[in-house]
Simulated scan of single mutants.
Amino acid sequence: MMRTIAEINDKINHNNAVVMTAEEVKAKVADVGITKVTKEVDVITTGTFEPMESSGAVINLGHTDPPIKIRRCWLDGVPAYSGFGAVDLYLGASCAAEVTDGEEMKERGGGHVIEDLIAGKSVRVHAQGQVTDCYPRANFETTITRDTINQFYLFNPRNIYQNFIVGVNGGDQPLFTYLGPLQPRLGNAVYSNSGAISPLLNDPDLQIVGIGTRIFLGGGIGYIAWEGTQHFPLQKRLPNHTPIGPAATLALIGNGKQMNKRWVRGCYFKNYGPSLMLGVGVPLPVLNEEVVVRCAVQDKDLVAPVVDLSIPRRVRPTFGLVSYTQLKSGKIVIDGKIVRVAPLASIYLSRQVAQELKQWIDAGKFTLTTAVASITKEGSFLPQDSWTKF
Rank of each mutant, 00 (worst) to 15 (best):
328 K>F: 06
328 K>E: 11
328 K>V: 07
330 G>E: 12
330 G>H: 13
332 I>P: 11
332 I>E: 09
333 V>D: 14
333 V>Y: 14
334 I>L: 11
334 I>N: 12
335 D>G: 07
335 D>V: 05
337 K>Y: 10
338 I>H: 09
338 I>F: 08
340 R>V: 13
340 R>A: 14
341 V>F: 00
341 V>R: 04
341 V>H: 02
342 A>G: 03
343 P>F: 05
343 P>N: 09
343 P>V: 00
343 P>S: 15
345 A>Q: 00
345 A>W: 02
346 S>G: 11
347 I>S: 00
347 I>V: 05
347 I>H: 02
348 Y>N: 05
348 Y>L: 00
348 Y>D: 06
349 L>R: 03
349 L>M: 10
350 S>D: 10
350 S>M: 07
350 S>A: 15
351 R>Y: 05
351 R>T: 08
351 R>I: 01
352 Q>C: 10
352 Q>F: 04
352 Q>T: 09
354 A>C: 00
354 A>L: 05
354 A>P: 03
355 Q>F: 07
355 Q>Y: 07
355 Q>H: 05
356 E>H: 12
357 L>P: 05
357 L>K: 03
358 K>H: 02
359 Q>L: 13
359 Q>F: 08
360 W>N: 12
361 I>A: 03
361 I>H: 05
361 I>R: 00
361 I>M: 04
361 I>Q: 02
361 I>N: 03
361 I>L: 00
362 D>W: 04
362 D>V: 13
362 D>M: 03
362 D>R: 07
364 G>C: 04
364 G>F: 09
365 K>Q: 15
365 K>E: 15
365 K>Y: 07
366 F>I: 14
366 F>Q: 12
368 L>S: 04
368 L>A: 06
368 L>Y: 04
369 T>P: 11
369 T>N: 15
369 T>K: 14
370 T>R: 13
371 A>V: 02
371 A>I: 08
371 A>W: 05
371 A>C: 04
371 A>L: 13
372 V>W: 09
372 V>C: 08
372 V>Y: 10
373 A>Y: 05
374 S>F: 06
374 S>Q: 10
375 I>D: 01
375 I>H: 05
375 I>P: 08
